[in-house]
Structure formats: C-alpha cells, structure tokens
C-alpha cells in the first residue's frame, strides 16, 4: 500500500531533518531536473564532536536526491537502491544548502549527484555523492507536487529531538543496534525510509569502533524493503587505515526472517 496521494503520510522522517525543497525552473527534459534544498536547524542533528552526523547528511541526500530522481522519473516514481556519500566531519555551522542534479535518467533507473554545502562556512562542500534510484510505477499514480515543485519543511511536534531518539535507535543484543519500523520511519511506499536505514547504519558503524567515533564515508546498497521490524544493524570491523576504520554493516528485518535489507561499508574516524 502506497501513500502518494497524501502529502503527509510517509514523510515523517523529514520532521527530523526539516529539509525544504525547491525545483529550479521547469526542466525541458528529465535529465535537466534540478532540485535544491535548505536545512536551517542543526543542533539536534549533531554528533559527539559537534559535526552533523553522517546519518543525518545521508538522510538529507536521500531526500533531495530522491525528489530530483522522482521528478525525472515521472510518471513513474523511485525507490533508492544505492547511496554513496563522502562527508567532511568538521564542526558544521549551517544553514546547509542541498543540491541534486540528474546524471543519467533511464527507463529503469535514475542516477543523481548530490552535494551539501555549509553556507555558514563559506559554502564549504561538506558532503557529496551519488544516489541511484530504481523507477517503479506506484499504485494510484505518482505524487502530484505541481511544477516547478516547492515543498516547505514540515511542521512537527518534535523537530528538536536528538537524531537517535527520534528514530528510537537503541542497543539490540551484543554489538547490534535496532529501530522499530512504525509509521514515523516509513516512506510513501510504506516501507522503511532510506534515511532511517542510513541513520541506523551510521549508529552501528560508530558503535562498533567507539561511541564517540565519527562516520565519514558511506556506501549503502538498499537490497530489500523493510516492512516488519525491528530493523537490526550489525557492524563488523574490516581493518584500520590512516583515514579511519573500515566497517561493514548489515541491516536485517528481524520480523521477516532476518531478511537482509541493506549492506553498507563505512569509514569511521576515532575521536
């Protein structure tokens, strides 16, 4: 069951990142689709060393990149299949400016390039990467945002909740972290939001290295939808390098026979 006819259902994840989105003009072709965004409040998204957590940046990238890909895929819509993001784990000032452009728009997949800049730090590029999305046909048709699309940041009762509390992420047995799959973390397709999965991966990767560690680079493959929950992330260290620890994370849907939902490889810097 999808919820594309309803502007609110399936978009609760955006209450934590508070991303506002705007399409830059009406594109003459799908490949020209260009979406920008803005995030004003960062305090509740910061990690232990003051930077915006990689999980939050991944969620923003998934949001702006997914919207750009979706508009390029009309009359279809998209689900994220692969997100690769490099982040610069500095102390971020904000506000953040988001930018997504289409690299390739095909019948089955759309590839977008996503960049996030810190406008409070001379537009420093703090995250950039590539989001690949699969094109699907939603039951009842795609969402109708009007063109050029404009979407304000949602109002919510708890935009200031710390990131991990918002998602309800906590320990789950030895070495694992988990979150429940409920309406707060579902996307319009009715499955676990890619951003929620990303925050879980970030938490698991940092957890296995050091509680105060900072995830910098992340490669995520979204393999199967998360429907039942809890979603459980287990991280395994692969080795150490000058730029950090290399960690593999596997996310499973415990309520669906431990089906593997996502795999990720992260670089994690110790404090």
């Amino acid at each position: 069951m999808t919820a594309f006819g309803d502007a609110e259902t399936g978009r609760a994840v955006n209450r934590i990142t508070q991303v506002s989105l705007r399409e830059v003009d009406h594109p003459s072709a799908p490949a020209d689709t260009h979406v920008v965004g803005e995030v004003l409040e960062l305090e509740h998204l910061r990690g232990p060393v003051g930077n915006v957590r990689a999980g939050a940046l991944l969620t923003m990238a998934d949001t702006v990149g997914g919207m750009c890909a979706g508009l390029a895929a009309l009359p279809g819509w998209v689900v994220s299949t692969n997100l690769m993001l490099r982040t610069d784990p500095l102390v971020h000032c904000g506000p953040l400016a988001l930018d997504a452009r289409v690299l390739r728009a095909g019948r089955k997949a759309v590839v977008t390039q996503v960049q996030i800049r810190d406008t409070g730090d001379e537009d420093h590029l703090i995250a950039d990467g590539v989001l690949t999305s699969a094109v699907l046909v939603p039951e009842g048709g795609p969402p109708d945002f009007g063109r050029p699309m404009v979407l304000a940041a949602p109002e919510g009762p708890d935009p200031g909740l710390p990131l991990l509390e918002f998602f309800g992420i906590g320990p789950h047995g030895a070495g694992a972290v988990a979150l429940e799959i409920n309406d707060r973390v579902r996307n319009p397709w009715g499955i676990l939001h890619g951003g929620a999965t990303a925050v879980l991966v970030d938490a698991a990767a940092a957890h296995v290295v050091d509680g105060d560690a900072t995830t910098s680079d992340v490669v995520m493959h979204f393999l199967r939808p998360g429907r039942v929950g809890p979603a459980v992330a287990r991280a395994t260290g692969l080795g150490h390098r000058p730029d950090g620890d290399i960690v593999r994370v596997e996310v499973t849907d415990a309520g669906a026979g431990d089906r593997v939902m996502a795999i990720a490889v992260c670089t994690v810097r110790r404090p």
Partner: peptide, 10 residues
C-alpha cells in the same frame, strides 16, 4: 555495470 566500490586495507 552500474557502480563499483573498493575499500582496501592494504
């Protein structure tokens, strides 16, 4: 091939 990632511990 759509993408390839390589993370080495050389």
């Amino acid at each position: 091939t759509a993408d390839l990632t390589l993370h080495l511990t050389p």
